[in-house]
């Protein structure tokens, strides 16, 4: 490469690179600094503890139980969102009269601020004046279900809201994926007399797979980070049944003011997720492409 050009490159790339790395590095190193100390905002003094916080996390039953709840929330939510999103995308791929407007209307939940949709669903779920119990009562399924107060049900009620809000997102990605599929394989399948199911199973699904994987990955990342929904609807209760890892980190940091412990938790989450996703990306998504 021309030496002059290389210098010019750095002139352009340099400043933003410095800015971005400063911003990330400063924040990240401060988080690490906090993570290896024992800062509690209520105490003036703090000291260096090394890996103390991380060892504590390893032995923290509440943290592990929140990991399990996070996995449940993410797995069930994302799975159903992917299935529903795919079904909707396939269904609305056909041409019909109100196709455009139906597609736009479907996107409304996704555009809504999560706090707002959480508040709306909290009202929907209200055992006394909520619309869900009212409708169930009319069709004879009982009108006194305690959606958010029943410990066996609360997490699933949150998942339902999450599905309602984020299926449109999966739909949006898959629908544009479907639109960009080549027409030739379909024509060939038609000539060969393949059934609709076979066409779907052997052509659409394999062709769409990379897009589905991307959508799922984005949803998993987002879903692990879910906070507003849980904070507004249950605050981690009842009986800790909806306290995900993110929520627990918040409680440690902003309720108990154990800033260092919360930082250590966040760092652990970040490390584990980064490893998982780099592996996932390299071995599944990148390979398929």
């Amino acid at each position: 490469m021309d030496k002059n050009l290389r210098v010019k490159q750095w002139i352009w790339i340099g400043p933003p690179l410095i800015m971005v790395s400063l911003l990330t590095l400063v924040v990240l190193s401060y988080a690490v600094y906090l993570g290896v100390h024992d800062v509690n905002l209520l105490k003036k003094n703090f000291s260096y503890t090394g890996f103390g916080n991380f060892v504590k996390i390893w032995h923290d039953a509440r943290a592990w139980s929140s990991v399990w709840k996070t996995v449940k929330f993410v797995f069930i939510g994302t799975l159903l969102e992917a299935i529903l999103g795919l079904a909707l995308a396939l269904y609305l791929h056909k041409d019909f009269k109100l196709r455009k407007i139906t597609r736009s209307l479907l996107l409304i939940p996704m555009i809504m601020t999560p706090v707002v949709s959480a508040l709306i669903w909290r009202i929907f779920y209200d055992p006394y004046s909520g619309i869900i119990n009212y409708l169930l009562g009319i069709i004879g399924l009982g009108g006194k279900h305690d959606w958010l107060g029943n410990p066996d049900m609360a997490l699933y009620s949150l998942i339902i809201t999450d599905i309602w809000q984020w299926t449109p997102f999966v739909f949006l990605i898959l629908a544009s994926g479907l639109d960009s599929l080549p027409a030739e394989p379909y024509e060939a399948a038609k000539v060969d007399g393949a059934s609709r199911f076979n066409t779907f199973w052997h052509i659409t699904l394999p062709l769409l797979k990379p897009v589905i994987l991307i959508a799922v990955m984005l949803r998993v990342i987002d879903s692990i980070k879910t906070f507003d929904l849980i904070y507004v609807m249950t605050r981690g209760g009842p009986a800790l049944k909806t306290e995900t890892l993110n929520m627990y980190t918040y409680v440690q940091g902003m309720n108990n003011f154990n800033i260092s412990y919360a930082s250590a938790l966040s760092i652990s989450i970040t490390i584990v997720l980064t490893i998982l996703f780099v592996y996932f990306y390299k071995n599944v998504i990148a390979q398929k492409n």
């Binding site: 410990p151 009986a239 309720n255 108990n256 154990n258």
Partner: peptide
């Protein structure tokens, strides 16, 4: 006590568990 919030958090979980029969 200074860390009253954490004490309340711990105790609140116990009350919620007892109320729901989870413990």
């Amino acid at each position: 006590v200074p860390n009253i919030n954490e004490v309340i958090n711990n105790t609140g979980i116990a009350i919620s568990k007892s109320l729901l029969g989870a413990s």
